[in-house]
Design a protein around this nucleic acid. Structure first.
Lengths: 209, 209, 209, 209
DNA sequence: GATGAATGAGCGTTCATTCAT
DNA sequence: GATGAATGAACGCTCATTCAT
C-alpha cells in the first residue's frame, strides 16, 4: 500500500507481503544463520508485525522451508529455460555451472542460505522432504542421462552419483567464495576449471558419434 | 593417544575425561545437530557433571571447534601416513577419496558432524579459523601440486580450486550417503566413479613423462 | 426475546446474530473452557467474522458475562413458571432440584459452563456483579422463606445459607455427572436422594415450636 | 542458607525450595487465578529464578497439580487424625464439616485455590487424575458407610452421592465466604446449620439401635 | 578437580482486539 | 453493519553458563 513503490497500474499486491517476508528472511538467515535469526528481526526488516509472519507461515521452520521451496523453484525455472536453449550436454553443463556459481554474485544472500542452511535442514527438520531441491538435482542428472543417450557422455557413470558429485563441488566453491573474500578461484575463473575437469572426465572419448 | 600422559600414581588417565567428553559430543552433535544438542546431554553421555565440561572447554562453541580440531587432526595424521606410502598423484588421489568416503562407514558420527556442522561453524562462530581443516585442504592441494610438478597433472589447474572442488564433491556424497540410507553410490561404487571422473579430468594427457 | 426488535423492513432478524454468537460461545466455552476458547473459534462456529463479535460484545469477558446473564435469566424465567405452579415449599424444592439437575441432560453445554466457569468469573472478572445469578439464588432462598412463613420449614435456618448450601450440592452433582460419565447417582436417582435428605433436614417436624 | 530462618539444628532444608515455590504458587494462584498467574510472579515471590521452578515442576500445569496433591494430602492426613478420634458418624461428620469450613479462616489462599481452580483442572488439564482429591471424597464416603454399618445412618442413601452432595455444599459455602466479605452465614454459624440439616437428613430415625 | 543446583536472558508463538475497506 | 488481515503485547519455557561446596 503506502509501501508499494511500484508505480503504474495500481493493483497487484497479492502475495506482496508474503514475498516481503521471504526477502527479509533471506537476508536475515544469510546474515545470522537460521538459529541466530530472530523472527522479530525478520518481521522488522519486512516491515510487518511479528504476528503477521504467522499468517503466512506456520512456524520459523516453515519459513525456512518455504524460502527454500520458493527460491529453488525459481532457480529450477530459470535453469529449465537456460537448458532448453542448448541441445548438447557439454553446453548445458557449462551453462548449469556458470549459472549456479553466478548466484554468488547475483544473489549472495540466497547463495549463502542454500550453501549453509540447506544441509542441516534436511536432517533436522522433521519429515521435511525438499521436493524442489530433488527436482534441482534431477535437472542435473537429466543432463547426464541425455548426454549418455546422445553418446556424448560415458555410459559407465551413474547420473545420480555424478549429479551429486557435481553439485557438491559447485556448492563448496560457492561457499568458499562467500566465506572468504579471497576470490581464490576467480583468477583463472574457477567455473572454467571445474567445467573443464568435469567435462573431460565425463566425455565419451573414442566413442562412436 | 599422544595426549595420554600415563603418569605415575593412581589412575593415570589424564586427558581421558576430555576425550570422553569429545566422544560424547561427537555422538550428540551427530544425532541432534549442534543447536539441538544440549550440554547436559553431552555431560550425561560422557558420565561427567555439566560443569566439568567447562573445565575442559570454554563454551559449547569451543567444544565443537575442539572436536573439529581434534578429529580433523587425526584424519590429517592418518592421511599423511596413507599418502606417504604412495609416490604418484594418481594413487594418492585414489587413496584420499577412498579414505574420506570410508569415514561414512568407519565413523558415521564424525562424518555427519563434519558434513553438516562444519559449514555453519566457519561462518557463525566468531573469529574461528579452522586451522586443521585448512591443513586438510592443504593436503589435498599438495597432492595436486606434487602431481603437477611431476607432470602427472595438468598445469593449467589451480590446486586450491581443485582441492575445494574435490572436497565438495566428496563431502556431498558423504552427506547423501548419511542422510538417505539409499546407498545409491555403492552399487557401481561411487568412489570409483568419482576417482575415475576426476582423474580423467586432471590427468596430463600427452604431456612429457 | 425481550431484545427481539422485530422491526419493519427486511429480515426482521435483529438480535439473531447476537444469539448465534451466544450459542457458539456456549458450545466452545463448554468444550475448551473460557481460557482455552478462541474468539476466532466462536466466530467461525457462529458463522460470522471475528470483528463482528465486537459489534455485539465489548470483549471476550463481556461475552462470557452476557452468556451467563442471558442463560441464567432464561433459567430464572423457567423456574418462576415452574415454582408458580406449586404452593408448598416441599413440592417447589423438589421441582427446583429436578429442574437444575435436569440441565445436565437437557443442556449439557450450558450446564458445563455454569458449573465450571461461573465460579472463576465472579472472582476474576473485574467488578462483575452477576445480577441474574444472585436472582437465581434469590429464588431458592425465597422458597425457603415462604416455607418458613408457612410453617413448613424450620425457623432456625438462614435462607441465604441454606440456598447456598443446596446450590453447591446440586452444582457439584451436576459437575460430577458431566465430568465422569459414570452416572453414579442415576441408579437410585441422585436427585431423589438429595431432595429427600434436604427435605428431611429442613422440614419443620412437630409443628411450629 | 541466608534465607533459612529456622534456628536451632542447622540442617533440614531438603525440599525447602520446593515448598517455598508451592507456597508462592498458592498465594499467586489465589490472588490472580491459575491463568492470570505468571510464572515469573511465583518465582519472584518464592525468591527463586524463573528457571528454578522448572527444576521442581515440569510445567505451570504441573505446579498447580502438585499444589493440589500436596495440600489435599495434608488435608487428608489431618482429617484422618481428626476422624480417628471419633467413633460415631454424627461426631465425625460434624468435625469434618467444621474442619473443611475452617479452612476459609486458617488457610484462605488454599481454600480459594481449591474452591475455584480445582473444578476446571479436572476437565481441562489433559489426563489429570486427581488421586488425592478422590481420596478426600473417599474419606467422606467412608464416614457415611461406617455410619450405615453402625445403624446410625439410613441405609437407602448412596455414600458416593451423599459425599459429593455434602462436599459441594461445603465448597460453595467456602467460596461464598471467600468472595463476599459479607459473612452472611457466620451469625447463626453456617457450619452448625449445615451439619444440622444434613445430619437430620441422614439420620436413621426409628431404626433399630 | 568435580559437582549440579541455580540462574535469567532470550525467543517463538498465540490470540484478543482494532480498523481500513 | 460486516469483514478479516494485521497487530504487538505478553508469557511459558529452555538451556548455556556459573559458582558455592
Amino acid at each position: 500500500m503506502a509501501q508499494q513503490a511500484g508505480g503504474g497500474a495500481g493493483g497487484g499486491e497479492v502475495g506482496e507481503k508474503r514475498e516481503r517476508i521471504l526477502e527479509a528472511a533471506e537476508e536475515v538467515f544469510a546474515r545470522r544463520g537460521f538459529h541466530g535469526a530472530r523472527v522479530t528481526d525478520i518481521a522488522r526488516l519486512a516491515g510487518v508485525a511479528d504476528g503477521t509472519i504467522y499468517l503466512y507461515f506456520k512456524s520459523k521452520d516453515d519459513l525456512l522451508v518455504s524460502l527454500f521451496e520458493d527460491r529453488v523453484e525459481r532457480i529450477n525455472n530459470m535453469l529449465r529455460i537456460i537448458l532448453a536453449s542448448e541441445q548438447r550436454a557439454q553446453a548445458r553443463l557449462e551453462k548449469f555451472i556458470n549459472y549456479y556459481l553466478g548466484l554468488a554474485v547475483k544473489n549472495p544472500n540466497l547463495a549463502e542460505v542454500i550453501a549453509i542452511e540447506l544441509r542441516s535442514s534436511s536432517k533436522f527438520m522433521k519429515e521435511y522432504k525438499n521436493v524442489k531441491f530433488i527436482e534441482f538435482l534431477g535437472l542435473l542428472a537429466q543432463i547426464i542421462k541425455d548426454g549418455q543417450t546422445a553418446g556424448e557422455i560415458r555410459e559407465d557413470l551413474t547420473p545420480e552419483v555424478i549429479s551429486r558429485t557435481l553439485f557438491g563441488a559447485l556448492d563448496e566453491l560457492l561457499l568458499g567464495y562467500l566465506l572468504s573474500r579471497r576470490r581464490y578461484y576467480e583468477a583463472t575463473s574457477a567455473s572454467e576449471q571445474v567445467f573443464n575437469v568435469f567435462w573431460t572426465g565425463l566425455e565419451n572419448r573414442g566413442g562412436r558419434r
